[in-house]
Design a protein around this nucleic acid. Structure first.
Lengths: 167, 167
DNA sequence: ATAAACTTTCATTTATTTTTGAAAGTTTAA
DNA sequence: TTAAACTTTCAAAAATAAATGAAAGTTTAT
């Protein structure tokens, strides 16, 4: 396999993986492209390589920057903007986890707390509902806290975690 | 908040959370419904509660059973089939992790290995590509192995893991 | 202040995913 | 074996999500 083919395959794969995890395909592809680029890439080049429109490129770059995993870069004497991706994978994972926690898990927890605290003195059905949603609340809270902990680990938390799990 | 309202809110929230993580909304809603039901539910009742068609209910129940998190149940003297969800959350998490690993992560790893082993003796650009995709391969492999390890932990792995992380 | 060079926005279009529902398939009881 | 009671399948329709592109906005150099 030659370089161009490999690069394309990687970008496509990363895009597909993104889709499966609820991240829009183009966003994941742009990120993939930037991760494997050894220098900052202009919007023009991104549009060209991925065959996407200016608007699409602009919006998804903005989204990636909002996630804190893509940065703008300015080059001396150049009018246009260039983009680079976070290349440290530990840092990348932490940022993604933090963002998904904030946007998706925390709001879900709030609802779980609400529904698990209704008065259920009536039927067995209601008791089971409160019991199960309470357990779910505890579980999700614990999992979410675990993500927070990752953040505190300064370097290579994944490697260390694997070691710990192994005992 | 009364029971019916709370139950509906929970089902909707779980459905929305599913969507955001690449799981189809109805599939997540059916799962939510079954998780908080203290007894097995018929397809008819699922269709009715979620206002979905027979085909939709059938296909998503099949998908949930393929994931191993919903079971069929037969009642004596009853022609129709009833469904229950896995209610043990540790077990649920392990099964979901195992399934996503098999379907999504393992295939992605295969591709990562392929593209990270091309000959890159030429440019700095190619060297960076190989370097970055290799790192990614290692990272994803490690994360995936961690999921496997969860499986080996027999009970309450999440609680124990949190303890370990806390040091 | 102007205009060139660039980026962002968002109403509309396009693509993708999900849902429907009717026909085909299956199982059970008599 | 037949027919009622139920489930599955899948082509077509509907709903949802993403992409386009032209107009509006911004920045910079002169």
């Amino acid at each position: 396999m030659e370089f161009k083919e490999a690069k394309n395959k990687f970008v496509q794969t990363w895009g597909a993986l993104g889709s499966q995890w609820g991240i829009n395909k183009t966003m994941a592809q742009i990120h993939a492209l930037l991760m494997v680029s050894n220098e900052a890439v202009s919007m023009e080049d991104i549009m060209d390589e991925l065959q996407i429109s200016r608007g699409n490129a602009s919006m998804n770059l903005r989204a990636l920057m909002d996630w804190g995993i893509v940065y703008k870069e300015y080059k001396a004497g150049e009018r246009r903007e260039f983009f680079t991706a976070e290349k440290d994978l530990d840092e990348l994972a932490v940022k993604i986890a933090r963002e998904r926690s904030k946007r998706e898990i925390k709001p879900a927890l709030k609802i779980l707390k609400e529904v698990s605290t209704i008065d259920a003195s009536n039927s067995a059905e209601e008791k089971h509902f409160v019991d199960q949603t309470s357990k779910l609340y505890d579980f999700v809270l614990k999992a979410d806290n675990m993500l927070d902990k990752m953040t505190e680990f300064n370097e290579n938390w994944l490697g260390r975690l694997v070691l710990k799990i192994m005992k």
